[in-house]
């Protein structure tokens, strides 16, 4: 690198400047993460056990050998995936509508509405949903007026997913809105000029151009959903078992080793899904040739 010599007034070599820029973020994010991972790894291998049992992989094999564990992993992934899909289906048109709002007053109100779930505590929000979704609640009363139901909407996956979607919506709308503002309306005009309209226009032009934003939204939303804990506990009421709840239970039982194993599995599961999504993102960029 001749960069250091080529740029006057920059005494520090490039690697040092980059390091300095990265340092604060690295210290804040990566050090605790690495520390936590090391600790978790050690716990999962039973290295500093308090009951005198030997160190080794036996907690891992106990967890992975139990069919129930796999059922729970699958439940966690399924709930997070469904929540992600429904969130994206709602967030995409929401972002498109926000983009079209011309009146600043309406835009302001729309943002308040969008972020309102984040202004409530997770506990009161969950109890709110329990009231709304119970057999005698508002939603079933409304469906009853239409001659439908009553449906069981809480203490099962449906309720958990509804409540998760509610709170993660804003995290999905923002990246999608962001990419929509970056994609000029010119491409839509060009496509229509060439004869495209309706769903064809959406599928061939709008969707591919906004896909990177959708992928980012999916990544954020999936990571948040799979690690959600309070919502599934309250709205699932023990009948919907997810990894995050099992970790909590095991900590309560002072089963540190098992909790550590499950925490690592949760993290790896989330990373695997993010990896796949990132590959999707890359391939769309590759198609663009940049």
């Amino acid at each position: 690198m001749s960069g250091a010599a080529a740029r006057p007034g920059n005494a520090l070599p490039r690697w040092m400047r980059v390091s300095l820029l990265v340092a604060p973020g690295f210290v804040l994010v990566m050090l605790p993460f690495l520390g936590a991972m090391t600790t978790l790894g050690a716990y999962s291998l039973n290295i500093n056990s308090t009951d005198g049992s030997a160190a080794g992989f036996h907690v891992w094999s106990r967890f992975l050998g139990d069919p129930f564990s796999w059922k729970v992993i699958w439940t966690s992934v399924r709930i997070a995936a469904l929540a992600t899909v429904f969130t994206l289906l709602l967030a995409y048109p929401t972002a498109a509508a926000l983009l079209r709002l011309r009146n600043p007053l309406f835009t302001g109100l729309a943002y308040v509405a969008l972020f309102s779930p984040l202004l409530m505590s997770v506990v009161s929000r969950s109890y709110g949903w329990m009231l709304l979704l119970s057999e005698t609640g508002f939603v079933n009363a409304l469906l009853g007026q239409l001659g439908l139901g009553p449906y069981r909407l809480i203490f099962n996956e449906t309720g958990v997913i509804i409540a998760i979607v509610h709170v993660i919506m804003p995290y999905a709308v923002l990246p999608i809105l962001n990419i929509m503002t970056q994609v000029p309306g010119l491409y839509n005009e060009a496509a229509r000029d060439l004869g495209a309209s309706g769903f064809t226009l959406f599928r061939r032009v709008t969707l591919p151009l906004t896909l990177p934003g959708i992928v980012v939204a999916a990544e954020i939303v999936f990571a948040l959903s799979i690690s959600a804990f309070v919502t599934p506990s309250l709205l699932g009421a023990g009948r919907v078992q997810t990894l995050s709840q099992m970790i909590y239970e095991n900590i309560g039982l002072i089963e540190w080793a098992m909790a550590a194993v499950q925490a690592i599995v949760l993290l790896l599961t989330a990373l695997a899904v993010l990896f796949v999504l990132e590959r999707v993102n890359r391939s769309t960029h590759a198609a663009k040739g940049d």
């Binding site: 000029p184 010119l186 005009e189 060009a190 229509r192 060439l194 061939r204 769309t284 198609a287």
Partner: peptide, 28 residues
């Protein structure tokens, strides 16, 4: 509507589809 007119427009800011190659753009 625009998509039904017997005209085609070459835009001031070209507006080629960035997610497609030359063939797919022309074939659109």
């Amino acid at each position: 509507p625009i998509e039904k007119r017997a005209t085609n427009l070459v835009f001031q800011k070209m507006a080629l589809f960035p997610h497609m190659n030359v063939f797919d753009n022309v074939a659109f």
